[in-house]
Nucleic acid binder design. Sequence first.
DNA 1: AATTTTAGGGTGTGCGCACACGCAAAGGTA
DNA 2: TACCTTTGCGTGTGCGCACACCCTAAAATT
Lengths: 356, 356
Amino acid sequence: MSKRVTIKDVAEQAGVSVGTVDRVIHNRGRVSQDVKEKILQVMQELDFEPNLIASTLAFNRSINIGVLMPTLHSDPYWDQPLLGMRRAQRAVKHYGVILCEQTFDLFSPQDFQNKATQIIAQKPDALVFPPIFLKESLTILDLCAQAQIPTILINTDVEHPHVLSYIGQDSYQSGVLAGKLLHYAIDGDGAVLLINLDKETTNAKHLLDKESGLRHYFDQNRARALPIVRRDVEEFDNPGYLKKLMQGLIQQYPNIKAVFVSNSRAYKLVEAIKEEAFADLCMLGFDLLPSNLHFLHEGKIDFLINQNAGYQGYSAIKNLTDYFIFKKQLPRVQHLPLDIVVAENAAYYLQRELGN
Amino acid sequence: MSKRVTIKDVAEQAGVSVGTVDRVIHNRGRVSQDVKEKILQVMQELDFEPNLIASTLAFNRSINIGVLMPTLHSDPYWDQPLLGMRRAQRAVKHYGVILCEQTFDLFSPQDFQNKATQIIAQKPDALVFPPIFLKESLTILDLCAQAQIPTILINTDVEHPHVLSYIGQDSYQSGVLAGKLLHYAIDGDGAVLLINLDKETTNAKHLLDKESGLRHYFDQNRARALPIVRRDVEEFDNPGYLKKLMQGLIQQYPNIKAVFVSNSRAYKLVEAIKEEAFADLCMLGFDLLPSNLHFLHEGKIDFLINQNAGYQGYSAIKNLTDYFIFKKQLPRVQHLPLDIVVAENAAYYLQRELGN
DNA sequence: AATTTTAGGGTGTGCGCACACGCAAAGGTA
DNA sequence: TACCTTTGCGTGTGCGCACACCCTAAAATT
């Protein structure tokens, strides 16, 4: 039960008062050099570790975390990180962590910038956001640097000296992994259709990275390299269009055996073509959206790579708590696992995204 | 910044003192029925939530968690949960969580029982152990029930009314999942070798469950069902024996195309046969041991199913902290994800097992 | 009727730390 | 010499809660 060392013990041992020890701990000055050294030495000897529980209680301030995310329910993927953050907030609210949420239109860079400016004006203790729009995000990061607001990025990384930490997937490696899975799924040869269901306006860097990764995998494995057909589709909300596109592609490239949907919208493609004769293509997509899981269990989707969208948000808030309360250093980059999800192991991951 | 509601607020609002409110919160009696109801009502109205930080500080007691595990370094698999527990302890030590470790000989039921009795005699606040030996474990669980020591099981579940929670893999489902992976890996037909590298003395229930799962998968998918050849090998530490065994099996069943090693010892088999001509078999094993990872990256092992051994331990300690400090209910069964690990996504999982 | 018991409730202290404030001595200025 | 400023350090209070202890009046016992 060896009692823990307190600052009182340190004070006695060093022959000073607790106030002086406290000043040394917080570098608040008003201590002579020799007394300071003596105290530091005693802390070493006694292996003093401050009681963070008592510290948090006495500190008695709340930590306001600014959160800038796409509007809830505008896109099923983007709900997950926000919900993850709220779960995390519930878990650490005892430490006084509060979220200041601000949402923006997923397809409007202007709105993004406006809302970001608004939230910075509130002077939060930290800021979390996904840098969906590259140019605007750099501007915002400059503002944060100026206002000295530590910033965590999720989903997409951006090079900027002020970024405290990036939490998210390794897009390139997820492409490599997809290559491996397609490699297993396609017996013999065939072609792969790579399809980007996204609008031009959004930052597409992570999509390009995935493509590079996929190509890299096949380049490294010449023996079983597969030709890649690529299409970018902005009209992903138009099933008729998707259907015709696919019919045309299958006719043009009859050896297409697998489809790689580079983001979370695989279900949109499946919905559009599920009645077609060629619907038994091997299908690989991303993320555990309800619609994707539905088709995974139906056998219409073979693999989902889980980018842990919910956990990204959860982790961002937890990390900031560690940073502020427990004074932990954060690594510049935190790549989350790329989970290979098939029907047989989906339940566990889903539970993790929702619960906890 | 809406100030949080404290018990003082509740007391004032209800027209009583904080001591009375405190008695109601902890059900310590000495409060008349109507006053109690009044206070409960006020707590509802004000949405009072106790400040767990202050509560923990005032409580000022340590929580001793008894940990009963196989001796460190006797088996690489069994190191992981123990190390995970130590990591968790470091993360929650502020709450006064202390581990009382006791280790036993992995192959001696008698030693297990002795050490368990010893640790219970120390009256810990909770106990965590893997019920490796079924009969002895039931006895221990009876003792725990009698001494009112909440108990968490890891790695293997056991039916017993006193078990607070089981944290570990779903063995059956991991067999099913293995079936799916072998299904993908084997083009056309072939046979699967199922090999148990374990001693009879250890509880083999989870191995049987894995086999059932595997067979179930093939039964459900008649179209691509594969015949299964099964062997139990106790001499897994004898490479020469393993080599001869495999040579004989390949000769007898030339259509064996894949090997399913039902536990973490796949590396022992690979080491024994890596020079052989038939070493390009599809190999599936369990767990991220350094040796397994080595062969995964070398291409000698195709898939590892990660049972999250380290996280099991980590999670057990975290759960008990939640249980004691945050008064959370624990689910009776907590199945951890069955991660499909290939060379391309191994790094992330390894990081999680070590760091965090 | 006198005494003990008990129900019902209040008060005070401490958990370990953060921080404002007080206070003396040393140094500086008029 | 009288008066301010700075340096260096101690003291006291509060964070919200847990719990031991104290107090009063009513009920039970003798």
